Amino acid sequence: MRLRKGKRQTVDERPTAPAATPGLAVELRGVQRQYGRGTGTVDALAGVDLGLPRGTFTAVMGPSGSGKSTFMQCAAGLDRPTSGSVFLGGTEITGMSEDELTELRRSRLGFVFQAFNLLPSLTVEQNVLLPMRLAGERQDRRRATEVLAQVGLGDKARRRPGELSGGQQQRVAVARALATNPDVIFADEPTGALDTGTAAEVLGLLRNAVDTLAATVVMVTHDPAAAAWADRVLFLADGAFADHLERGSAEQIAARMAQLTSRTGAMAGAVA
Rank of each mutant, 00 (worst) to 15 (best):
L205N: 02
D231L: 03
S85C: 03
A193W: 07
V11E: 15
T123N: 10
R37P: 02
M72A: 01
G89T: 07
R232I: 07
A230G: 00
V147L: 07
A157C: 04
T102M: 11
E201R: 10
Q32R: 14
K68E: 12
K7T: 13
L119I: 15
L119W: 09
A255P: 00
E246M: 07
M257Q: 14
P131F: 11
E100W: 03
R33M: 12
D231F: 04
A44R: 02
R2W: 11
V86G: 06
A272E: 13
V11T: 13
I253R: 07
Q168I: 04
T94D: 11
T191A: 08
D140F: 00
P53T: 08
V48E: 10
R2C: 00
A25D: 06
T91C: 09
G152A: 07
V124N: 01
W229M: 08
R160V: 05
R171K: 13
T94L: 12
Q259F: 08
E125Y: 01
P161N: 07
Q114N: 05
N208F: 09
Q169P: 05
A250D: 13
V202P: 01
P18A: 11
R176I: 10
T221I: 05
E103M: 12
D49N: 08
I185D: 06
A254P: 02
E189D: 09
A19K: 14
L52D: 04
P15S: 05
E163G: 06
G154Y: 05
A173R: 04
E146A: 10
R143V: 02
A255T: 13
L101C: 04
E201P: 04
A199E: 08
P15N: 01
S249G: 05
D188G: 02
D231W: 02
V202T: 08
G167L: 02
D99E: 13
L122V: 01
L28E: 09
P18V: 09
A187H: 02
T102W: 10
